[in-house]
Design a protein around this nucleic acid. Structure first.
Lengths: 248, 248
DNA sequence: CCGCTTTCTCAGGGAATTCACAGGAACGGG
DNA sequence: CCCGTTCCTGTGAATTCCCTGAGAAAGCGG
C-alpha cells in the first residue's frame, strides 16, 4: 500500500473558501473504508467515514461533506434509504455508489439519474478517484484551482477524461481501458516515480491476484503507442518504478 | 462504466431575475418523487415536492413554482381537484401530468388543452425533462440563458426537440421514439462517454428490467440511420460506453 | 380486427483486450 | 568484465465485450 502524502497540484480541487474538499465514505467493510480513506486523503481531501446508515446520516449532519461515497448494501438500512435521508436535509450532495458487479442491472436503475455515478466492486482506486473528481467538479461545490477542463496535459501529451481520448502532439492515439487508466495515473503524477506496487494498487482492481509484471507489460504497451519513434516520455527508474515527463 | 452526465449549459433555463427555475413535484410514491427531484435538480432547477394534494397547495403557495409535475392519481384528492385549486390562486402555472398508461385518454386530452402536457407512467427521465423544458419555455416564465431554440446540433447533425425531426447534413432521417430519446441524450452530451448503465437510466423507463444489451441494439439501429456510409459520428469506447461527436 | 411498426429477447460470431509465460536484453555492483 | 537482478516484449490462449440477424410480443392506425 501506498504511503506517499503529497496531493497533486495541477487539478487540485478546493472549496470556494479554499479549504479542502470534504468527502464522506460509507461502507460496512472496514478494510475497504480504510483503503478508500487513504486514497482520498492522498488527493488532499478531508475524509470522514461511517460503517452504517445511521452513522452516515449523523456524520453528514456535522461534517457537511461535498460528496459521499456510499455502498448500496449496508447492514442496517438500504443504501437507497440512506440516500433519501441525506437528500432530504442536504439536497445537492453528489453521491458515488459502490455496488457489486452482478447487482448492477436491477438495483442501480435510477441511481445515476441525478447526475450521480457509481462504481462496481471490485474497483480500482483510480476509478473511484476519477469519478469522484468528476462529480465534485460538476456539482460546482468546489472550485478548480486551475481551470483544467477535463483534460490532463503533460508536455505535448493530452488526455481527455470525458471522451477517453489521448493525443500526442495533435495526433490521436487509441488506448484500451486499462492503458487509459494507467496513463491517467502517470499523467496525474508527472515527473514523480511511481512504484509498480503503487501502480498495481491504484490502477488494478483491489482484488487483483495476478502477476506483478502486468505493470511492465502495460508500460510496454503504452510506450509502443505513446513513445513510438519520438523522444520518450515514459521513463524507467530501475529498482524504483516509472515516471512520465515532457519529452524535452 | 464511466463518467456522469454534466449539467447541460447549452439550453439552460433561468427566470427573468436569473435565479433558477422552480418546479413543484406532486406524487404520493416517495421513490418516484425522489427520482424526479434528483433528475430535475440535476437540470439546475430548484425542486420542492409534495406527497398529496393538500401539501401541494400549501407548497405552491409559498414556493411559487414556475411549473408543476402532478400525478393525476393522488390519495386525498383527485389531481384535477388539485389543479383547480392551483389554478384558482396561481392561474398561469404550466402543469405536466403523470398518468398511468391505461388511464382514460380523453380526460387528459381536456386537461392539456390549456397548453399543459402529460407523460404516461412508467416514463423515462429524458422524456419528463424534455416535456418540462418545453412547458417552461413556452410559458414564458423563464428566459433561455442562451438562445438555443429547441434544436440540438452536433456537427452536421440536427435534432429538433419539438417536432422530433432529425437531419444529417440537410437530409431528413426518420427515427423511432426510442431512437430519438437515445440520440437526444447522446447529443446533449457531445464528446462525452456515456456508459450503458447511464443510458439505461435516462433513456429507458424507470422500471425497465430488461437486458442491458438493448442499448447496444439501439446504438446499432442509430448507426444504420445516422452513420450509414458517411463518416461515423457515434463511437464505441470499449469497456466504457458510447459517445457522439462531429464527424470531422 | 388486420397489417404494419416498434420494442425487445436471444443467441451466435467476431474482434479486441487482458494476462500468463518465458526467453532475452539491459543494468549495476563487485 | 562477470553475474545476478530487473526489466522488456513476443507469443498465444482465455476471456470479455460488442455487434447484429431473426423472430416473438406489444402497440398503433385504419
Amino acid at each position: 500500500m501506498t504511503t506517499t502524502t503529497a496531493p497533486q497540484g495541477r487539478t487540485e480541487l478546493l472549496r470556494p473558501d479554499r479549504t479542502p474538499v470534504r468527502v464522506l465514505v460509507v461502507d460496512d467493510e472496514a478494510p475497504l473504508t480504510e483503503l478508500l480513506s487513504m486514497a482520498l486523503r492522498y488527493e488532499g481531501w478531508e475524509v470522514r467515514s461511517a460503517g452504517d446508515g445511521a452513522a452516515a446520516v449523523r456524520a453528514a449532519r456535522d461534517f457537511r461533506p461535498d460528496a459521499v461515497v456510499l455502498d448500496v448494501m449496508l447492514p442496517d438500512m438500504d443504501g437507497l434509504a440512506v440516500l433519501g435521508r441525506l437528500r432530504r436535509e442536504y439536497a445537492d450532495v453528489p453521491v458515488l455508489f459502490l455496488t457489486a458487479r452482478d447487482a448492477v442491472e436491477d438495483r442501480i436503475a435510477g441511481l445515476t439519474a441525478g447526475g450521480d455515478d457509481y462504481v462496481t466492486k471490485p474497483f480500482s482506486l483510480e476509478e473511484v478517484v476519477a469519478r469522484l473528481r468528476g462529480l465534485i467538479r460538476r456539482s460546482g461545490s468546489a472550485v478548480a484551482a486551475e481551470r483544467g477542463e477535463s483534460t490532463l496535459t503533460v508536455g505535448e501529451l493530452v488526455l481527455d477524461e470525458d471522451s477517453h481520448e489521448v493525443w500526442r502532439g495533435g495526433e490521436a492515439i487509441h488506448v484500451t481501458a486499462t492503458e487509459f487508466e494507467l496513463l491517467r495515473f502517470l499523467m496525474r503524477n508527472p515527473r514523480r516515480v511511481l512504484s509498480k506496487a503503487q501502480i498495481l494498487d491504484r490502477v488494478w482492481n483491489y482484488d487483483f491476484g495476478g502477476q506483478a509484471n502486468v505493470v511492465e507489460l502495460y508500460i510496454s504497451y503504452l510506450r509502443k503507442k505513446i513513445d513510438a519513434g519520438r523522444t520518450p516520455m515514459i521513463h524507467t527508474r530501475r529498482g524504483a518504478g516509472y515516471l512520465i515527463k515532457p519529452g524535452e
